[in-house]
Amino acid sequence: MVQRGSKVRILRPESYWFQDVGTVASVDQSGIKYPVIVRFEKVNYSGINTNNFAEDELVEVEA
């Protein structure tokens, strides 16, 4: 279970941040499909630095 402030590695192959490390900004408990919002240092092609992920697409590298 990841929690706010954890450092996580992204396992979603189609993601711009695949294999990159980001910080968990928040975790939604309402039961949505992609409840974990992760914030990154670098921006993607659209200038965005956050994205939603499912918990099984993340691996915690640092608490």
Rank of each mutant, 00 (worst) to 15 (best):
R9E: 02
V24F: 03
V27N: 03
T50Y: 14
R12Y: 03
V38P: 01
N44A: 06
V2E: 00
D20N: 09
E62T: 12
G31I: 10
F40Y: 01
D20A: 10
N44E: 04
I32T: 13
L11F: 04
N51D: 15
E41I: 09
W17F: 04
G5M: 04
K42R: 14
E60G: 07
Q29C: 13
D20V: 10
V59N: 06
G5Q: 03
V2R: 06
P35I: 12
I32Y: 07
D56L: 06
L11D: 01
V24C: 07
Q3N: 08
L58Q: 00
K42M: 07
F40L: 00
K42G: 05
R39K: 12
S46I: 10
Y45P: 15
L58K: 00
N44V: 06
G5L: 04
Q3H: 11
A54P: 00
R4K: 13
G31M: 09
K33E: 10
V27I: 14
V38A: 00
I48T: 10
E57Q: 02
R39H: 09
S46R: 11
P13D: 03
R4G: 04
F40A: 00
K7I: 11
R9Q: 07
V36G: 00
R4P: 14
Y45A: 15
E62Y: 11
S26F: 14
V59T: 08
K33H: 06
I32S: 13
V36I: 15
A63I: 11
K7G: 02
A25T: 14
R12T: 06
E14G: 13
D20K: 09
V38T: 00
R39S: 09
Q19L: 14
P13H: 08
R12H: 02
T23R: 03
A54F: 04
Q29R: 14
Y45N: 15
E62R: 11
Y45E: 15
V21G: 01
N52M: 09
I32F: 07
Q3T: 11
V38K: 01
V24P: 01
Q19F: 08
L11E: 05
F53M: 01
W17H: 01
N51P: 01
D20C: 14
K33Q: 11
V59W: 08
S30T: 13
P13Y: 09
F53G: 01
N44H: 12
S6V: 09
Q29G: 10
R39Y: 12
Q3P: 04
P35Q: 08
I37T: 15
V36N: 00
V2P: 09
S30L: 06
E60F: 10
F53L: 01
E57T: 03
I48W: 08
M1C: 14
N52I: 05
S15Q: 03
V8M: 00
R4Q: 12
F18T: 00
G5C: 11
I37Y: 10
K33D: 10
L58N: 03
D56S: 11
V27W: 06
N52D: 07
R39M: 13
E55F: 15
G47Q: 04
A25G: 04
E57P: 04
L11I: 09
V21F: 07
E57F: 02
Q29F: 12
S46C: 15
I10R: 05
I10C: 09
E60N: 09
E57R: 01
S30C: 08
L58R: 02
S30E: 05
Y16W: 07
V27D: 01
F40R: 01
G5K: 03
V24M: 01
S30Q: 07
V38I: 03
Q29A: 11
L11A: 03
V21K: 02
D56F: 12
M1D: 07
Q3R: 14
V61T: 05
V21N: 02
K7L: 13
G47P: 03
R12I: 05
K33T: 08
K33M: 11
K7S: 06
I10D: 01
V21Q: 03
F53N: 03
F18S: 04
E55T: 12
S6E: 02
V43R: 13
W17D: 00
R4M: 11
M1K: 15
V8L: 00
I37C: 15
V43H: 12
V59I: 12
D56T: 09
V36Q: 00
F53T: 03
R12A: 07
E60W: 09
T50K: 06
V59E: 15
D56W: 15
V38E: 00
V61S: 02
A63V: 12
E41G: 07
A25D: 14
Y34C: 10
I37E: 14
V27L: 07
G22P: 03
P35N: 13
